[in-house]
Design a protein around this nucleic acid. Structure first.
Length: 256
DNA sequence: ATGGTAGCCTTGCTA
């Protein structure tokens, strides 16, 4: 089963690029982030036309996540547990085949010293707690999405330029490592040792043209899913097109 | 050089 994560930065604007990528890459499951629309406005028909079931959690203007899957999604959870007052559309999880799959959009957290960074760290604490719950169920799972964390300086084009960014803070990285230390596997990194492979390039300052990016989109696998990992990579093709997202898809293949 | 660009339903916010 091929599972991908793609922050589209508006599904309305990115639909042509997404459809072209689905036809070329033929993933079985796609975790989308930043759809930036209410679920009712999601372009269901176009995706059903390519053979995908669609489940989305959205809101107006910001955030929003979705799951596309060739097999129907079952037992859907539409929010990250642990905070009833959090109404930001950042999490959806479902059973697809024999896997539990989540599409998550972790808060960016900038600027430092504000409630935005506090919210990011609290969200990461909740994600860890929920991962522990999933591990206790002993069902293979994949937590895929835009983590807004570059795990190490190898995942950053210029660490000195990111010293004051929430994406590279020691606290952000410590909470990401806490997820890994539960026994989760970074699907791309475990198969690719080479540094400076990116999934995001800022629109500004010619970052894409100069390959100055960040690796912040990740697929974290439970031990039972990691045992079945056969391939993973970043597909830069969609980022090079006209009207591209600032992110590009990351994918992994889990043996049946 | 504290800018630059993109998408929001905009005159600023988020990234």
């Amino acid at each position: 089963m091929k599972i991908a994560t793609f922050n589209v930065n508006s599904i309305a604007v990115r639909l042509p690029i997404l459809l072209a990528w689905l036809e070329q890459a033929t993933p079985d499951v796609v975790c989308l982030q930043e759809i930036k629309c209410p679920a009712a406005d999601f372009p269901m028909l176009e995706l059903k036309g390519l053979g995908y079931h669609v489940e989305a959690v959205g809101q107006r203007a910001y955030n929003g996540v979705a799951l596309l899957s060739r097999a129907p999604a079952q037992d859907i959870v539409r929010a990250l547990p642990g905070e009833k007052t959090d109404d930001q559309a950042r999490y959806i999880e479902a059973t697809i085949g024999d896997l539990r799959v989540a599409s998550l959009y972790l808060p960016n957290g900038n600027p430092l010293g504000t409630e935005k960074f506090t919210y990011k760290l609290a969200w990461m604490r909740r994600l860890k707690a929920h991962a522990e719950t999933l591990l206790a169920r002993e069902v293979p799972f994949v937590l895929a999405g835009d983590y807004n964390v570059a795990p190490t300086d190898d995942d950053v084009y210029d660490p000195s330029a990111m010293l004051d960014d929430a994406i590279c803070q020691p606290e952000s990285r410590a909470r990401f490592r806490a997820l890994i230390n539960l026994g989760l596997t970074d699907a791309f990194r475990v198969l690719h040792a080479e540094p400076h492979r990116y999934s995001f390039w800022d629109y500004q300052a010619g970052r894409w043209y100069r390959d100055e990016g960040l690796r912040i989109d990740h697929l974290l696998l439970s031990p039972q899913a990691a045992d079945r990992l056969v391939a993973a990579d970043i597909d830069k093709t969609p980022r090079g097109k006209d009207k591209a997202s600032d992110h590009t898809p990351v994918w992994c293949e889990i043996a049946a």
